[in-house]
Nucleic acid binder design. Structure first.
Lengths: 103, 103
DNA sequence: TAAACCAGTTTATATTATAAACCAAATTAT
DNA sequence: ATAATTTGGTTTATAATATAAACTGGTTTA
């Protein structure tokens, strides 16, 4: 009978990206983080990070606030509820691929 | 002092691909699987699957054997030790991004 | 023996990731 | 004071990647 029918659930393409996933991973564990900090933690170039933050922001997964730290500009990022949910779903979906039990 | 320095380990780009990961996920749990089966399980188009199997094969992560099933051609795939190791490493690395504990 | 089908491969295209080049404001050096 | 350098980014060009469409060669069916 061979009843298997795995048919993997698709992986959210917005999260299935090394840098964006790293950003979300940072933001999920912290109240907020600024551009400079995220850049240091991920080792990304500024250009790449800027683009990926835009994408996460456009998707509503994070919110980006532009403020000042003294006289310098400062770009602060926070994960949103939508982002938190999407991340959790991504993790659950991925477990199917990684053969990690759901519970 | 702020000693965090996460610096995420890079994700093996060969495995960080939805279809290739699905293929590896199938092959890791089974002795062997043929093209038609993998195609059905993943829902991939034949062209896409063919390309991704080639890449996994070129990397030495799987081995591909061309045989016959009756008169029809049959492409059988097996994961290699190298592939098994790479998959395991990928999973461990990814856990850092997903905030899943190592043990 | 022509038409439809199966098991794939090759190639073209669309998307994506990434860094290089750029910019404005702030700081430091002369 | 002002020239040079650094900081905190954004915009744009390029390289890489994923993906499906188009194709091929053999096989079964009509």
């Amino acid at each position: 009978m061979e009843e298997k029918q795995t048919t993997f659930k698709p992986l959210d393409p917005l999260l299935h990206s090394e840098l964006r996933l790293a950003v979300m991973s940072i933001l999920i564990g912290v109240e907020e983080a600024d551009f400079v900090y995220i850049k240091a933690q991920t080792g990304a170039t500024a250009g790449n990070l800027s683009v990926q933050l835009d994408k996460l922001s456009a998707a509503g997964y994070i919110e980006v606030e532009k403020t000042f730290k003294g006289k310098k500009t400062c770009t602060i990022c926070r994960i949103t509820d939508k982002g938190r949910t999407a991340f959790a779903e991504y993790v659950e979906t991925l477990k199917q691929y990684l053969q990690i039990p759901k519970v």
